Simulated assay, not measured.
Amino acid sequence: MGKMEKVLLACFAFFVLFSAVSAQVFFADVNSQDRNQADVNFSRFPEIAEITEKISKLESSIFEMRSQDLTTVRVSDGLIVVSEQFKAEKEKLRTTRIADFSASKSKLTELFGLVELAFEAKDEIGVLERKLEEVRSEIDPVPVEEVLSKAKGELKDERYEKAIELAVEGQELIVDLQSFDTKARAAAEAATSNLVTTLDNNKVNILIGILVLVVGYLLLSSWLRHYLIWNKIKSLELEREAIKSEIKKAQEDFFVKGSMPERLYHIRIEVFSDMLRDIGRQLAVLMEEERHAKMVDLSFIAKKFKPK
Rank of each mutant, 00 (worst) to 15 (best):
D69R: 12
K105Y: 09
R97M: 02
F112V: 00
I98K: 12
F101D: 05
V115S: 02
G113A: 05
K92N: 13
K87D: 15
A103K: 09
E84Q: 13
E91P: 04
L79Q: 08
E91I: 07
S61N: 12
K90T: 07
L70T: 02
E91S: 12
S106E: 15
S102V: 09
V82N: 05
T71C: 00
D77G: 15
I98G: 02
E110C: 01
S67D: 10
V75E: 05
E64T: 08
R94A: 03
E59R: 10
L114T: 02
L114G: 06
V73F: 11
E89G: 03
I98C: 02
R97I: 03
T71S: 14
S76H: 04
S61R: 12
G78A: 07
A103P: 05
T96R: 03
T96I: 03
I62W: 09
Q85T: 06
L93I: 08
G113E: 00
D100K: 02
G113W: 10
G113Q: 09
T72L: 01
L93V: 05
S76F: 07
V73M: 15
K87H: 10
Q85V: 04
T109A: 12
T72G: 07
A88S: 08
R94E: 11
L111T: 05
T95H: 10
S104V: 00
Q68D: 09
E89M: 08
D69Y: 11
K107T: 08
